[in-house]
Design a protein around this nucleic acid. Structure first.
Lengths: 336, 336
DNA sequence: GGCCAAAATCGAACCGGTTCGATAAACCCG
DNA sequence: CGGGTTTATCGAACCGGTTCGATTTTGGCC
């Protein structure tokens, strides 16, 4: 491996000049720069990113801390992020935390030690100490999906409240009156927002919110399966169920299948998030789809800007909410 | 951030002794070691991994180069790998290459520059220059799924030939005679192996292999959809189709649905790989499931050993093949 | 040609560890 | 108690860059 010293020797300049020249500084004269470039090319010089990290105090890695890569939604998000990162000269370190706040903090500590350039972070905790701890890392950060705060980071997400409102509005217009909601994790920002959108839309339509029809499925397929079983075996079962994410949507669907309750004829289902392999799942789900590529693009824009301005004054936290797209499937029936 | 110098000062020893002591060397006396540990604790010393990487010439990161994270099979594999890595003090850098050999080499170059400790690698190329290039990186490496070579790396995979043989045997026993196979990428190790298993099993049963019933679906759902359409619209269509991976299995299933050809009544389907969300996909697929956790465990075992023995003589390349598990669903009908 | 400011280049310190040969201290045995 | 080993510790170089104040070169202008 060729080093700056090798290049310096060949171009007969000092290593500092080499460093300057290769980082594209205008303090180096055009001819010297050319000589250095040529020298670098002949020895096949490639800067050692590790040495650069040490000298600069930060690397060009971007950390991504997420709850569960095996959720296809997140996997696709990662692909987008990686594509953009590579184009901008960053590599990505992903860590899956199984939505465990303690593990999240552990990972952040590791990333901090690695002096990553910045972090894309989906937090699952929300206690004051947790937020405090996150804040303490002082890393350029973009928070996804679950707003915590106040914190010195940008926030990017789908408009959760709107997403569930869209679905709820849809089933109400189809004539449904007894509508259930299987929510995410109790107390988690996105879950409560989605629940709020549900409640508000029901109320706005002049209907009564039946608290018994609101269950927390923790964004988990199996949990949602259980919730759906409870809902569908009630004497006065709901005619429609809205689930707060894709895994739970599938869990609910499985429950209807196992129980032999026909969807959509006997119960309508609608979910937030794209359902993976939706093509082969019948009935096709009606869903509020998040614009993954857009979310990735804006998150990275925010993050890269924070990275660039790392040494300047703190940036005012920004926020960007996306409008989901309502995709009508065959899982909701018109009533009455 | 506290450094070795801080610790050294407090414990009144030199930095070299601190380094020795903290790396658990037995060349440091017990009492000195204790003093250093205490000092480290009081200042909250945490070694800077970047500096360590530079000094040691390699970092404690593990690179994972794969074709497509959005394949749930791979996502789950990643989770396992990350779990094991973290436990052993390694972080994971994943890169998705979209199965493009050129990108793979680019990523490997990046990882090499980062001086990663080792690499888990699923290669999609197989030209001599490609293999040569991979070999040139001289990184501790475990190759997954697609054997290339000869190369100084271990190889871990499911027994591809066995996987398709199991499925083929199964449908033959159910009475099928006209059996089609939708293979992976032409020329790719796993694809050809799986195809070979298919051919051999057909031949062993005394049947004729009909070359028209062998199509290459490139491990892609859409491609397999097209292949299935071609197969099912033939005058003498096959009574069973075996697909070489999960994405293609779903693509094939979608084709039967769109065409209105009932599975399994009119055509039987069976696939290699676990089908994601198999619970809600009807009919349940008959499949040869790869033991993901085991594959991850053994790959990491191999890799960590190579990392540990990095400076010793080259290790004889090892190979470990896993036997898949046949899971019977409702997608294959008994014939005649 | 000489003087001064601007531009280009250099040298050395630094980032935070590791490593190894050299030195110093402790130990063993006759 | 002295000589010869071990054993423990130290100092300094090194990994491969970056950065900034100091120095040299260049160029403009009178």
């Amino acid at each position: 491996m060729a080093t700056v010293r090798d290049v310096a020797k060949i171009a007969s300049v000092s290593t500092s000049t080499v460093s300057l020249a290769l980082s594209g500084s205008d303090k180096v004269s055009a001819k010297t720069r050319q000589r250095i470039w040529d020298a670098a090319k002949t020895v096949g010089y490639v800067p050692n990113p590790v040495a650069q990290s040490l000298a600069r105090g930060h690397s060009d890695m971007i950390g991504m801390v997420i709850g569960d890569v095996s959720n296809p939604f997140i996997a696709r998000f990662f692909k987008e992020v990686e594509r953009i990162s590579l184009k901008r000269g960053h590599m990505v370190i992903v860590s899956d935390t199984d939505t465990d706040p303690a593990r999240e903090l552990g990972i952040l500590r590791h990333l901090k030690a690695q002096h990553v350039a910045g972090v894309l972070f989906t937090p699952y905790g929300n206690s004051p100490e947790y937020v405090e701890a996150v804040q303490e890392f002082k890393l350029p950060m973009v928070v996804l999906d679950h707003k915590i705060g106040p914190i010195d980071a940008d926030f990017v997400a789908t408009d959760h409240e709107l997403a569930s409102a869209m679905l709820t509005e849809h089933v109400i217009r189809l004539g449904h009156r007894r509508i259930a909601h299987i929510a995410g994790n109790r107390g988690l920002y996105s879950a409560e927002q989605r629940l709020a959108g549900f409640r508000k839309t029901i109320a706005k339509a002049g209907l009564q919110v039946d608290e018994d029809l609101i269950l927390y499925g923790e964004y988990d397929g199996d949990r949602a399966y259980e919730c759906t079983m409870r809902l569908l075996t009630r004497p006065d079962r709901p005619t429609a169920i809205i689930t707060a994410n894709n895994m739970m949507g599938l869990g609910a669907l499985k429950a209807t299948m196992d129980l032999g309750v026909a969807c959509p004829d006997e119960v309508s289902l609608a979910t937030i998030d794209d359902v993976p392999w939706g093509d082969v799942i019948r009935p096709r789900m009606t869903m509020a789809v998040q614009p993954i590529a857009d979310i990735a693009r804006v998150s990275m824009e925010f993050l890269l800007e924070r990275i660039k301005r790392r040494n300047e004054l703190p940036i005012q936290p920004r926020e960007h909410l996306f409008v989901p797209q309502l995709v009508i499937g065959q899982s909701c029936a018109r009533l009455g």
